[in-house]
Nucleic acid binder design. Sequence first.
DNA 1: GTGAAAAAGCGTAGGGGTTGCACAGTTTCG
DNA 2: CGAAACTGTGCAACCCCTACGCTTTTTCAC
Lengths: 237, 237
Amino acid sequence: MTKDHGELPPGLALSWGVLPVQRRGPKPALSIEQIVATGIEFGDRDGFEAISLQRIAAHLGVTTNAMYRYVRSKEELIVLVNDKAVGLPPELPEGWRPAAIAWVDAQVKLYAERPWLLDVPIRGAPVTPNQLRWVEAMLTALSTTGLSQHDNLGCLLLLSGYVRNYASLARQLGSSADAPVQAEQVGRFLVPRLMEGGYPTLTSVYLNQEYEDGLDDDLEFGLARILDGIDVLIAKR
Amino acid sequence: MTKDHGELPPGLALSWGVLPVQRRGPKPALSIEQIVATGIEFGDRDGFEAISLQRIAAHLGVTTNAMYRYVRSKEELIVLVNDKAVGLPPELPEGWRPAAIAWVDAQVKLYAERPWLLDVPIRGAPVTPNQLRWVEAMLTALSTTGLSQHDNLGCLLLLSGYVRNYASLARQLGSSADAPVQAEQVGRFLVPRLMEGGYPTLTSVYLNQEYEDGLDDDLEFGLARILDGIDVLIAKR
DNA sequence: GTGAAAAAGCGTAGGGGTTGCACAGTTTCG
DNA sequence: CGAAACTGTGCAACCCCTACGCTTTTTCAC
């Protein structure tokens, strides 16, 4: 006898393991875990596009429609797959600064392993269990700073936004063997237009070839900026 | 006689106004400008999903396939629509810090006006003219800091990532009239699970009702953190 | 036990959407 | 004037999500 949770966002209840009680009728041939696992499998192998109800159904030997007995919509499936694929955060070291670095590194690594996670549309504030584990971990680490909860949330937003942005840039610059060739071709096309089109700063950036390299440094760079900024705040309060 | 630009990413050439020269045959009934404008129109009215070749074609009184005479793929269309919709950056004030604030504010405003821009998948480093105008503007403002170009690029990445992340959070918390109702319902569902599931920090955050309010402050907060961080760097060098 | 209720899966169907190919019409160059 | 080039279109193939109604299976209640 589960409570009636009314109109919750798709995937919320299911991700927390709240499934409609079933009393009669044939036993389901599939389980949500199975479906979600298959979704992740496809995502890992062929990217976000490959996660479709049709494909999962075919792979599990069922019709597409059968999926709708387990999941209300594709959106719900995506939420579940996402939360599962995100997994648990690592154990963070002592001290908010090392913790933040570890937290960021772990996410960068996660996005490197599962680039398709970057294609999952952000539906807003995190609400699923694993996502919230990550939030909880960082928030706990930040609680030693002496800042207010509100400030901590701000820092968290800052960090998570940065990681995601960095990862999505790293993704397309790093991946695919022909990335450098492509980049060179783009440069050849772009530079004359930048010169003549009134982009003086960008022109010099491109000519110095600093636009596309040293991405690993950039992660540390931006992170150091953020952490220094937080430091300033801590000192101020 | 335009040069052969080989295999450039979709939308690159077109966005810079390089279109294949045509010499014979009937004049095109449509223009790319027209198509892109229609795409923006649909995006503004019904969101990103509404931007489809089919819809645009129907609206312009042509078959869907006719679109492919103007655009190589949907991806290319999206790139063009995106660049056009981004528009030109505002004039930035003197001083890198006020400039950064103005730059961020302008983007927040842009995302508020055209939320669907947040749904446009990021294909990597910006290469289209208007996008690069924004980059150029901020890069120029940063050039007065005395930092290296590389550092400036890092700062830029930091800022743009932050804006985008902030905007996409603001979007779903702010928009839709039933957002507060929805949020309350989510809270009712979530809090007991947080308490019992080992999320102590989040529980207290939720109970203090600080999770979902004061978003305007958060923009300034995060931005101040970043700028302070940059300040520290400037002082260091 | 036995019948009724509930639930699962399937078939059918429809609505979008993107894309490829062959065709017919139109314009312009040689 | 003929051929080449380029236009839009019709047809068609896919893929995807989703709704409805039917049959079959299971299990609870009597």
